[in-house]
Design a protein around this nucleic acid. Structure first.
Lengths: 341, 341
DNA sequence: GCACCGGTGTGAATCGTTTCACGAAACAAG
DNA sequence: CTTGTTTCGTGAAACGATTCACACCGGTGC
């Protein structure tokens, strides 16, 4: 393909420099070589314009310095950020990212694993949805947000604690009638624990709560309908709403506002993820922030670790709450500031 | 690395099937082979669990079925969308994406080109910022938003027409005192034409206009300052604001609102890009929408085209206006709806 | 002077695929 | 039956790097 102009190889360099092939290899790979020889080789490399060819090394060593990242897409900001930090973390270690999209398609998840396997990637980081996905056991595999087995490391946020955090924060801000809404009722994965944490904290606090979940593929209007059904005499039946993701929170807030219900005055809303405008500006709502960068860093260090079997199989990373304008803590700030004047 | 368990090769398959190596290759590559032989080979592949190894092919053919995508990051939604659609377009053609980030760093742009060159990618799609970047001429290279030379295809939106469109739309909606704000005053690239188009249309229409540009690296507060300086007696000096990107529009709108200036009642704002919440939901502002998917598709078909030299060197794709709540056309809609009731 | 050793340059063998000249077989035309 | 033609299986020769047994050499210890 790009073989139009015959490129010089290590052997050409060796001849040009008057040294052996192995010596050139050592120079290129920064292995100990006498200063005199190093000079000769480097000069020859410059003269010939030699370009290292990774294909030869890949064949010989069966390692490509490449990690496959399998995610649904990079349309959703959470995936985009994940891809961003994972790629940066890999780059720091001189690894490359092979980007593969599944588009949430169970079959494509399988195909992609097959594909990158043929490409002899050195490892796979996968955020997948098929609970029965067959994970190859002869190649390092790390999953995000889904636990498969003891032998496959799973990296996730502390979803349970995130749920508890949301409930406690809403309670602290005065909410007593809570609701939880999320997508993906049928999936048993780590993010599902957001609900469990929320419920457990509500019970502890003695706050009433209701859980509403829709399955994947259900029209988004289901959330609107749920909200509509809980409008009683122009008022919303809940004063605290915890949403499984910021996306759900955003849509709910929009619908609530369209109904004339004020956020955060009438109902306070907390989302989950920590999505920001344009990836790095304002939060979209008050939310439980996932430590995306740490998740990425952990995925990378885990997948590259040579001793994978000795690693814990589920790593939960700490989340935190951040106020983003849909809870009363923002109002108070403004009030305090005004009082000072 | 993953060579722990010795994997069967085509030769092993050939022996198992009792055929020649070349025959196995033909079966694997879907070349014409007698039905009887095909069966034998396929059975042997199943029995041995043979896995195709791309490294061998890469070395032999010097082609990897991989295209490198060099962009600053995937934090900004525009880049994230670009990466998304390019990867999907490549996937459709059975090519893989090697994802490389420059973080806007001129040195990293060079390093990445060197890196993917060593990896023998079949082509490069690059969105870069160094005007003096050396583009290799022995590997298909397509750039986005920056024209280098006749021999290097550049794919971009019709930025000039986008600028005109914005001016005309603002004028049509009643604006007569316009302003244009953007980042990147020193760069001479395709997006800079947004200003040129805007200015040309303002002149044609006889609307007054002012241009404000800050260079990369200037604190974002520069826009706030510009706005502050044009507040006269509590009123904003302009009634129409066109921003070089949706990001600038977003920040400006936020600052204007903080000053008590209403959008779109007091000043109408149009951005550029067509960024949506969570990548695919509401627009952030009224905006000139870039056809990201077509840009991606064009990049891919161009970089994979074997006859690159016969292609036009600058391809401009059509943009369109979309209302997003920061122009009066949205208000009218609401008014009309209310009148109907 | 001899044995030993650490350091370092050498080059043949190897990784798994593609490719292509060759030959065998099958068939049509004369 | 011969000759020409087409189809298709065969297997040796690359592709460019890594690796490692080996050789060479200067230094050290006895």
């Amino acid at each position: 393909m790009a073989k139009s102009r015959n490129m010089p190889t290590m052997l050409d360099v060796a001849r040009e420099a008057g040294v052996a092939l192995g010596t050139v290899s050592k120079v290129v790979n920064h292995q100990p070589v006498g200063e005199e020889f190093r000079q000769k080789v480097e000069k020859a490399i410059d003269r010939l314009g030699y370009q290292y060819n990774s294909s030869g090394k890949a064949l010989r060593t069966d390692s490509t310095n490449t990690i496959a990242l399998i995610i649904p897409n990079t349309v959703h900001p959470f995936f985009a950020l994940l891809a961003n930090y994972i790629t940066m973390a890999l780059d720091k270690r001189h690894y490359r990212t092979l980007l593969c999209f599944t588009d949430y398609d169970v079959n494509r998840e399988m195909e992609m694993i097959q594909l990158v396997r043929n490409n002899r990637v050195d490892g796979i980081i996968g955020l997948t949805y098929n609970p029965a996905l067959e994970i190859p056991d002869d190649i390092p595999f790390v999953t995000i947000d889904r636990f498969f087995s003891e032998s496959i490391p799973c990296i996730a946020s502390d979803n349970f604690e995130g749920g508890r955090l949301a409930a406690r924060k809403l309670y602290e801000l005065g909410c007593r009638k809570m609701a939880f809404m999320r997508v993906g009722s049928t999936l048993v994965n780590e993010p599902a624990k957001r609900r469990d944490g929320f419920v457990s904290a509500c019970v502890e606090l003695g706050a009433s709560f209701e859980v509403f979940a829709i399955s994947d593929g259900t029209p988004d209007t289901a959330f609107d309908d749920f909200i509509d059904q809980h409008i009683i005499g122009g008022h919303f039946a809940f004063d605290g709403l915890f949403c499984g993701t910021d996306t759900v929170a955003y849509r709910s807030i929009r619908h609530l506002k369209a109904l004339g219900i004020r956020v955060p005055e009438d109902v306070q809303v907390i989302g989950f993820d920590g999505i920001r405008m344009f990836g790095n500006q304002d939060l979209i709502c008050s939310t439980i922030v996932q430590p995306v960068q740490e998740i990425a860093e952990t995925c990378v260090s885990t997948v590259l670790s040579k001793h994978m079997s000795t690693l814990p199989s589920l790593i939960c990373l700490p989340v935190h709450y951040a106020k983003g304008g849909t809870t009363r803590d923002c109002l108070e700030e403004i009030i305090e500031e005004e009082e000072k004047k």
